[in-house]
C-alpha cells in the first residue's frame, strides 16, 4: 500500500516534468495552431496588454487608474484626459474579472499612487471565469507569485499550459526580447 502511494507520487512527479518537456517540444515544433488546442498564448494580444505592462512598469504618480473589462480600456482614452491635464493610466484588458484586477492593483497601486481608482463593472463580469483575461495576463502581465496563485486558483488546463509557456518564455529571455 505504502509502496503503491510512493509509486503514484514518483510517477506524478516524473509525469509533471515529462508533460512540460513534451509540451514545450510540441508547442515549439508544431506549426499549426489547430494542433495546440489548449494553448492560447498571445503576446501583445488585442488589448495591447504587453505594451501597457511595459509602460505601467515605468509609470509613477497618476491621477486616475482605470481597471475593468473591455468597456474600461475602450471607454477611457488617456489622450482625452491628458488634454484636460489629468494623467490617467488604463489597465483594463478584455473580460477582466475581480481576480485579475486584484493582481494589477497589488502590483501597481503603490507605484502609481493614483488619487482615484475607477473600477468598471457590469453584471456579466461576475458570472464568467475570467479565463480570457487570465490568459492575456499570464502571457503579458507581471510574472510574480500573485500571477501563479491566480493560475492555480483558476484551475484550468489552458491557464496551466499558458503558465508553462510563460515560464519558458521568461527563462529563455524571449519575453523581454518581445517588442
Amino acid at each position: 500500500m505504502t509502496f503503491f502511494l510512493k509509486r503514484v507520487l514518483i510517477f506524478t512527479s516524473i509525469a509533471s516534468i515529462g508533460y512540460c518537456i513534451v509540451f514545450l517540444l510540441w508547442t515549439n515544433l508544431v506549426p499549426f495552431q489547430a494542433f495546440k488546442k489548449n494553448l492560447n498564448y498571445k503576446m501583445g494580444s488585442y488589448g495591447s496588454m504587453f505594451t501597457r505592462i511595459q509602460e505601467a512598469d515605468t509609470t509613477r504618480d497618476v491621477d486616475i487608474l482605470v481597471l475593468g473589462s473591455s468597456h474600461a480600456y475602450r471607454g477611457f482614452d488617456p489622450r482625452i484626459f491628458e488634454e484636460y491635464g489629468i494623467k490617467l493610466f488604463n489597465l483594463g484588458p478584455s473580460n477582466q474579472t475581480p481576480k485579475q484586477a486584484n493582481i494589477l492593483v497589488k502590483k501597481y497601486l503603490d507605484q502609481m499612487s493614483p488619487e482615484l481608482v475607477i473600477y468598471e463593472v457590469y453584471p456579466g463580469i461576475f458570472q464568467g471565469d475570467g479565463l480570457e483575461s487570465s490568459l492575456d495576463l499570464i502571457a503579458n502581465g507581471p510574472l510574480n507569485s500573485d500571477l501563479i496563485s491566480m493560475t492555480i486558483s483558476l484551475n484550468h488546463v489552458k491557464a496551466y499550459n499558458a503558465m508553462i509557456k510563460r515560464l519558458y518564455m521568461t527563462k529563455t529571455g524571449q519575453y523581454d526580447a518581445f517588442n
Binding site: F11, I14, A15, G18, Y19, V22, F23, W26, F35, K36, K37, N38, L39, H156, V157, K158, Y160, N161
Partner: peptide, 18 residues
C-alpha cells in the same frame, strides 16, 4: 509504460475539452 501514460496525459492536456 510510463512514457505511454505520459503521452496520454499530454494528449489530454493539449486536446481535452475544457
Amino acid at each position: 509504460r510510463w512514457s505511454s501514460y505520459m503521452m496520454i496525459i499530454f494528449l489530454m492536456g493539449m486536446f481535452m475539452q475544457t
